[in-house]
């Protein structure tokens, strides 16, 4: 019973420790390799074609 309570208490703590946003984002996300690099984005970016129009508001 005591071990079960300890496990129930530790499980969420371990989850948040191991799988916090930074852990997931920094560890697995390859999108961010390019999208956080100024030089890479500058290299890959293609400007869109412009159309004439007036801003609303």
């Amino acid at each position: 019973m005591g071990n079960k309570s300890l496990l129930l208490f530790l499980a969420p703590a371990l989850f948040f420790l191991l799988y916090s946003s930074s852990t997931i984002a920094a560890g697995k996300n390859n999108c961010l390799v390019c999208h956080t690099s100024d030089a890479t984005m500058k290299l890959l970016y293609k400007p869109p074609a412009m159309v004439a129009s007036e801003g609303e508001g």
Partner: peptide, 18 residues
């Protein structure tokens, strides 16, 4: 299109990945 890498660790919106 540049993502601020400092945000990624702080903001829970990024927790699930792009």
């Amino acid at each position: 299109y540049l993502v601020d890498k400092n945000l990624v660790a702080k903001d829970p919106h990024f927790a699930t990945g792009c």
